[in-house]
Amino acid sequence: MSNVANEFSLLEETLLIEKPEKTEPLGILFWICVGWIGVNVLAAILANVLPMKNPLFEDYNAINVGPGLHHLFGTDDLGRDIFSRVVFGSRVSIAVGVGAMVIGFGVGAPLGMLAAYKRGRFDTVLTTFMYVLLAFPAIIATIAVLSFWTPRALLKIIVVIGLASVPLVYRVIRTATLNVATKDYIIAAKVQGATDRRILIKELLPNIAPIGVSFLLIGIATVITLEGALAFLGLSVNPPTPSWGNMINEARTVLAQNPWLVIFPSLALCLFLLCLNFIGDRLRTHFDVTEVKL
């Protein structure tokens, strides 16, 4: 009777249940996460105009002050305000995350869609090339390039991580497109006289977009973590410009004396990633029309 287990799912298909006209709401937790991300992004954009202390200003009268009214998150060993450094630091993290993914998706997604739709030689050559790139350890390549490509500027970091993510994005989008491209409605569109361009935009894109968006969000989170790791190795933006990663890196030596220095940027990083991952995952299940909603 070992065969019985995989037959269970069949039952659900045999039940005739009218499909829901409206999908269930996304839930309060989802909107809280969206709100938090929104606040972070807004703060990062408006950091200059917000009434905040200069993150680079060294106030020697207030060194290693704990969290309080005057310095919300306290100050570091140079008297810099942690709160404003966390806010300004989010700029680097968010810029790297979004920027790298824009490059990754800008190059990888159209190529992946085209390859899966066109198939044939174009697909074979491109996919082989991408798999060769995937086989090359991206993190080591990134570290190597960044170690030599000095001075390190934000744009360089974005470009390097973005290019490194292209094969990953390509693979995800190509697989997603392959599933859709073999469906009868694609053939139907073709025989009605739709051009390839029209099929790619009208038929394929709406079906891949949900997968793309959720992967994009999770990708941003991954890149932010990567930036943190690079900063930890001292390979991200040069101090004194703050980023969540290099704040944690700089503070690790004084962790025992002044834990606030690590706790606040870590907390900001964690919350941001958690929200991104949650939103991405929730969107994926929400838009998954094939999933049985029983």
Partner: peptide, 8 residues
């Protein structure tokens, strides 16, 4: 079957 939509 107890489902999200009710008893089936």
């Amino acid at each position: 079957f107890a489902t999200a939509g009710g008893l089936v």
